[in-house]
């Protein structure tokens, strides 16, 4: 199993009891509120609110925080460069290049926004099963075939990951060791090509199996989403928190 991508497991805790549609919308509203701010106090309270949701979602705290902090190398590089590329009051010098205070503030600001949004997203939406996510998106009027594509993808990621691991074991049993060589590139290329070929053949079998069970292009999506008083309380709390963050920004 690829860690984090659960198909059936619902997290417990307060967040787990909230309607999935409300959680998706809350994540978007929160992201918009945080991204629109520039004030440090507002951004820090946004990050604090996201941490609060993480606790309520009962996700494993340390692994989730590690995922939050991890960014692509190129984003880290751009943030580190910002103090040197943004004009402003010089703060310090590094290897002959002056770093500006404005640039440093901008980099900190982006870092805070990115982490707050990703943390809230993982706590609110990442804590539901990927199948529930598909159903919630369908109920939020996303196109039906996009949702089917999502459900198919989720269903087969784990299957294909197992297949990938089997192929890797087969390669290693024949003495394959990855290095920066042409041989490695060709072997990995064949690996990806083989996975694609097998995937297509698998999909032919899936379609045949589904056709003989009467598949006509869509599944009935059964779910029992119901919005109760808890959901309204949660929605109100989300609006309140977002309003407070934006109020800090304006003040």
């Amino acid at each position: 199993m690829i860690p984090g991508l659960d198909q059936g497991e619902e997290s417990m805790g307060v967040i787990g009891g909230i309607d999935p549609r409300i959680r998706v919308v809350a994540a978007i509203v929160f992201a918009m509120a945080v991204v629109s701010c520039r004030d440090m106090a507002a951004l820090l309270s946004g990050l604090a609110a996201a941490l609060g949701v993480l606790v309520l979602a009962r996700l494993p705290v340390l692994p989730t925080l590690r995922r939050m902090v991890a960014m692509d190398m190129f984003v880290v590089f751009i943030l580190v460069m910002l103090p040197f590329t943004m004009p402003g009051d010089p703060l310090f010098e590094f290897a002959g290049f002056a770093a500006s205070r404005q640039g440093l503030m901008r980099a900190v600001e982006i870092g805070l926004k990115a982490n707050a949004v990703v943390l809230a997203l993982m706590a609110l939406v990442g804590s539901m099963s990927s199948v529930t996510l598909g159903h919630a998106l369908y109920r939020l009027r996303l196109p039906e075939n996009l949702v089917h594509l999502l459900l198919f993808t989720v269903r087969y990621i784990d299957v294909l990951h197992q297949e990938y691991l089997r192929l890797r074991i087969a390669m290693e049993a024949r003495g394959f060791q990855p290095a920066t060589t042409l041989h490695t590139m060709r072997s990995f290329g064949y690996l990806v090509g083989m996975m694609l070929v097998r995937a297509l053949e698998r999909s032919e079998r899936i379609l045949a199996a589904m056709s003989c069970r009467g598949f006509v292009g869509h599944f009935p999506l059964f779910d029992a989403f119901r919005i109760g008083w808890r959901d309204w309380v949660f929605a109100a709390a989300t609006v309140l928190v977002c309003t407070l963050i934006v109020a800090l920004e304006i003040a």
């Binding site: 089917h148 594509l149 459900l151 198919f152 993808t153 989720v154 269903r155 087969y156 990621i157 299957v159 294909l160 990806v192 996975m195 694609l196 995937a199 297509l200 698998r202 999909s203 032919e204 899936i206 379609l207 589904m210």
Partner: peptide, 9 residues
Amino acid sequence: PATGVLSAT
């Protein structure tokens, strides 16, 4: 199904 499986790949 093919798109889903290829997307997973």
